[in-house]
Design a protein around this nucleic acid. Structure first.
Lengths: 250, 250
DNA sequence: CTAAGTAAGTTGGACTGTACAACTAAGTGT
DNA sequence: ACACTTAGTTGTACAGTCCAACTTACTTAG
């Protein structure tokens, strides 16, 4: 990092911070964090979006965007804390699955100047906390969002969906989308919703049960037919990685 | 992103950029890009590091660090271009495998202030271009570096190694570490070096050959024993993802 | 009280690809 | 000619999925 010679003619007096360190008098990109928050609602994969404010000189007024915002160098110790704060502010959820997705930075993605965003993606259960008033869930039929998003958030969302689908093939990630107690057919349905294809019942059960990620509770889900065993996530479990993917179609 | 109300008492006059957009008068983190560059040299996995300058007020003077530096908002169109520039400046290589690794940002990782780095990782062949004078290859025996690195670059390197090893289990990534022409035993040796464990010869060959990623050239590698078929990467091939990992030990 | 219906969960044979190990092939050096 | 070494193949065992049929346990209609 740093320490290289730089052209002095870059102009602008952004980023003046000449304490004991020199060489810092050059323009700095804007730094933001955005979070792609997924949940299963109404048997479909949905993403949480917030509406942009309509204020003076706001980019993409009233457009829909990923929850996020500038890094606050006073409040945020690090990027993950910043992402967790955004998530908490919009959903009330505090301890979900939160993973870094990647970063997007360019001269043109924000009309206010060179900017870089650090994107995270989160999985939360259906029954999680209170939604912020400017936030709304959007379904993703066929893994796509109908609407255009502000900034390059469409690209970020597409990447998040791709990553989610990809990882669901060989990990236990969907477990984080489940409520506290669930049945194996429930879990299988969530896998199928995310992957958008049916899975083999017996292979699915064998795989999940031998992964040591869930444990039965002493209750059954009752319904109009044969009751199903309820399970819960073993607490403190990291996601499990399987040595095979679910066999992909063709 | 953005558009939220902010405390005005953050002080500092960094990031003044009051054109048609308001709300931008708050301190901005430093933005850098770092690249973890891997190659196989002397039958072992190595990483390229550069020595920090010793100048006035430089952090970690003469320490070893990942190649990288500040984003130059005048030169760099986007983050990937910036990473490619760093790679080119240090190694002369222009078109290798370059993948985003993640980002690290916190108040404390750089003594000059709140900073965020966008880390990339690159795989280049042994026989690639000319090394910069301040750069040196460091071996990674057992997937570890002996020396301590500047900033949090030790963490970043460890993450890169982990990601590399992980992906080598189920992808064709090692192909990008190979010279233009190579034999299957050569390739297997590289897999084994990265994974630090032996692989099954017949299963390896079946897998690689059925992945349609390499093609034979009309030559054999001659040596003191049976000649081996030479192959090259099919050009323009994206990395291949296998549906199983190599069966992990125990 | 029984029969039909439905979803949960199990079982077994076919198939795919790895594990392990022995084997054949093609060159060199003595 | 023979040993030696590495390239590459072959065959049996095994693990886990695929596919399909089956049993189990409950509700509801008649």
């Amino acid at each position: 990092m740093a320490g290289e010679t730089r052209s002095k003619d870059l102009g602008k007096d952004l980023g003046k911070d000449l304490g004991k360190f020199g060489q810092l008098d050059f323009p700095r990109p804007l730094t933001t964090v955005d979070v792609v928050i997924f949940a299963i609602l109404n048997d479909s994969l949905q993403v949480l979006l917030v509406q942009r404010p309509a204020g003076e000189g706001e980019p993409f007024p009233l457009g829909w965007a990923l929850p996020g915002g500038f890094v606050d160098v006073a409040k945020d110790r690090d990027l993950a804390a910043c992402a967790a704060r955004k998530l908490r502010e919009k959903t009330g959820v505090t301890s979900p699955y939160l993973e870094q997705l990647g970063s997007w930075g360019s001269a043109t993605r924000d009309p206010r100047g060179w900017s870089a965003t650090h994107a995270y993606f989160a999985l939360i259960p259906d029954d999680a906390g209170e939604l912020a008033p400017d936030a709304r869930w959007f379904p993703l039929p066929g893994g796509r969002l109908k609407d255009k998003l502000a900034f390059d958030h469409g690209d970020i969302l597409a990447t998040a969906i791709q990553r989610l689908r990809n990882k669901v093939e060989y990990t236990s990630l969907p477990a984080y989308l489940m409520p506290a107690e669930f049945t194996l057919p429930d879990l299988q349905r969530v896998y199928e919703i995310v992957l958008d294809r049916p899975l083999e019942k017996s292979a699915f059960r064998t795989r999940i049960l031998s992964a040591d990620m869930i444990e039965p509770v002493a209750k059954m889900r009752r319904g109009p037919n044969r009751p199903a065993q309820l399970y819960r996530l073993k607490k403190g479990r990291e996601p499990v990685y399987f040595v095979r993917t679910f066999n992909p179609p063709e």
